[in-house]
Design a protein around this nucleic acid. Structure first.
Lengths: 252, 252
DNA sequence: TAGTGGTCTAGACCACCTC
DNA sequence: AGGTGGTCTAGACCACTAA
């Protein structure tokens, strides 16, 4: 058996809040996540069995199992039947494997400076209306922004979205689009993305301050809400020397 | 309440296999996934409540809940407290939102033709050894392949991996790398990927049959197994006019 | 053979939404 | 007020792994 068992002090298992709104399994998962993050439980450590830990918490086995399952789904723990539960090996652990979808989207918008190049209401074309899932005569918001850091342009962003009244032009200069949407109650559950590359057009080259024909990294994204409706369609063009798209795939 | 309730015939709820190795919740989830895929349960349909469905299956509520949860996690169903469970709206449903990690990896390798340009055992550099998580003196397998379809080159693939004996040069001409690894028992659970773009080098331009300096889509990937150990590190260079990277982010 | 996680059951109480 | 999903309990039996 690989993996050293480290006895945990009783404090870890006490003080759960049974009154508040946070489910017990979530509280337990948070605690273990913190213990892993701060190094108290290093890679490869083997945990006590789930029944014993449940007893120390004063929890039933299903609840303890559920807490563990949360961390297994995040890739922090590994369970094997007949063996036990271990902290996962390797570096993904620290690399916060599960940046939430929101963090992932917001990250790209949290820019030092954003210039709003275009902000207009638009009658969608047939294709756009279909992709957004709206009627042809319903106007959609169309915006273009240039993102930069220290006067160095990084990306050109173009978005089409429905919730126009939620997004004011002035605010876009200072805050991220997804941050604004989320604050106003829009849920974003799934993002489908297509990435490719091509040579910069003249306009793109000028705005991004690169020679015409330089490589440009392109991202097309459709964001869906909790019930599968389209929230937003975005096209972003990155200067590849200043930006890399990073993502993680997890097998369930 | 949005969503039409459609009564399902009794056949849907009969004939579960309680003897075989497939868990009941998985069987139930498969059935509903099939019903959604074939259009029997269109977008927006509201399901019966979980207790009633459990009774029709002859299942306890936790088991029925677990089956539903599988589909919620896949993004096929939406549950709201006090409301009910619905088939998700929108097109993600059909788009097989959850290609498994394996499918995602294997897809890129299932090529009409693959030419093996290089196949060698290599003493890793310090950086490579560290990234693979091996000792400096342990040789790793280093391969380069050119993937094409109809004599049109698509991608240049370079991989470093540990499980050298598992992968024979001849087989690489005809089969995908990940397919081979999986067949030989290697599990792949997490892939961390970085995508960018740059101008093609002379060698790349020659092999991919594009002018030197053309835009190239670059993907760097580290694949981890179930316990977080590195399985493989890959660098792929795509012709962007012939390939687009597609991926889906899901908020949990 | 002993210990582990994987599955399943039959109940209970609660928070939330709609009418 | 009634119905929905969300949580939690206390057990049971089984499959797998390791010694």
């Amino acid at each position: 058996m690989t993996g050293i068992e480290r006895p945990l002090p009783d404090e870890v298992f006490s003080g759960l809040d049974r009154e508040g709104p946070v489910p017990l399994y979530a509280q337990v998962a948070e605690r273990f996540e913190a213990l892993i993050a701060d190094g108290t439980l290093p890679s490869g450590t083997r945990l006590e069995n789930e029944i014993a830990m449940g007893e120390r918490f004063g929890l039933s086995r299903p609840t303890m199992r559920r807490a563990i399952q949360v961390l297994v789904d995040k890739g922090l723990l590994v369970r094997r039947r007949g063996v036990g539960t271990q902290i996962v090996h390797g570096s993904i652990t620290r690399r916060a494997e599960l940046s939430s979808l929101y963090d992932d989207l917001a990250q790209e918008q949290r820019s030092p400076t954003t210039e709003v190049l275009l902000y207009e209401m638009l009658e969608p074309t047939a294709e756009l209306a279909q992709r957004l899932g709206v009627e042809l005569d319903k106007p959609v918001l169309h915006i273009k922004r240039l993102r930069a850091a220290d006067d160095a342009p990084i990306a050109l962003m173009e978005n089409h979205l429905l919730e126009a009244p939620l997004v004011q032009r002035e605010e876009l200069e200072h805050r991220g689009l997804y941050e604004m949407l989320r604050e106003r109650g829009t849920t974003m559950r799934v993002a489908r993305q297509f990435v490719s590359a091509r040579a910069a057009t003249k306009d793109e080259a000028r705005l991004l301050d690169v020679p015409a024909g330089s490589p440009i990294l392109t991202l097309e994204r459709t964001v869906y809400d909790q019930s599968g409706r389209v929230v937003e369609i975005g096209h972003t063009h990155y200067r590849p020397d200043r930006y890399t798209i990073e993502f993680t795939l997890v097998e369930k």
